[in-house]
């Protein structure tokens, strides 16, 4: 992918933002020295970017996260160093935003600076296999709620339609109509279709802008 200085990932709850954010940060690190990933999730108590803190550290990627993430402190706190994303123009940053409009609220605070600089991409992550976004209409509804809460407009779409570990290549292929539909209805480009690295070879060549995701370790 061609990255702007800041890549923002938003979407419906559970659409797969965190995994994509991590993989994008890993890819960015191959091209740039100064890379950061910001966990602005104020919604999820578990399964967060912070769970990959060790791997990020090894790769030399700066993790910007509330010190309470993953702890027992159950408050929607934002990291104090989140402003370094907008202040430090040398950093390439990926921002992982919490789900839905509630999660996107966290963005409103830094969005004016990001728009002012205008070197960013705001990507809507979509998954047609989530029960509340099974079609174009419902997905656009969620998208509009996020844009209102986060005070911004999306610039592109990532199709991450999946059924977790049971996802087949066929599931991904049959989600293309849906993704194209969302792109057409919103006028936004479909910048990528993301799949688990296990499915990448099987789908390679069949889908444009296909990206492989190394998935975060979870409980079996």
């Amino acid at each position: 992918m061609n990255y702007k200085r800041i890549t923002i990932l938003c979407g419906h709850y559970g659409s797969g933002k965190t995994n994509i954010a991590l993989n994008m940060a890993y890819e960015l690190k191959e091209k740039h020295d100064n890379v950061a990933i910001a966990d602005l999730d104020i919604v999820n108590p578990y399964f967060r970017t912070t769970d990959s803190a060790e791997e990020l550290k090894q790769k030399g990627i700066k993790l910007i996260a509330s010190k309470y993430a993953g702890s027992n402190v159950d408050i929607p706190a934002l990291p104090q160093d989140m402003y370094s994303i907008t202040d430090d123009k040398t950093v390439h940053a990926v921002i992982d935003v919490g789900g839905d409009d509630r999660g996107a609220l966290a963005l409103g605070r830094i969005m004016p600076q990001i728009e002012n600089e205008n070197d960013y991409e705001a990507l809507l992550v979509i998954n047609k296999y989530r029960p509340l976004t099974p079609d174009v209409t419902s997905t656009i509804e969620v998208m509009a709620e996020i844009e209102t809460a986060g005070k911004f407009k999306f610039t592109g779409i990532v199709n991450n339609s999946n059924l977790g570990v049971e996802t087949t290549a066929e599931d991904v292929l049959s989600s293309q109509n849906y993704a194209d539909g969302v792109a057409k209805a919103t006028g936004l480009p479909l910048v990528a279709t993301s799949v688990s690295d296990k499915l990448f070879d099987e789908l390679s060549g069949k889908i444009d802008n296909l990206i492989a995701l190394k998935l975060q370790k979870k409980i079996n």
Binding site: G14, Y129, R130, P134, L163, G164, E166, T168
Partner: peptide, 16 residues
Amino acid sequence: MADKVLMKGNEAIAEA
């Protein structure tokens, strides 16, 4: 597999 959806456990309880 189109009859399946990807859900959080909490959501599955609510929808069920």
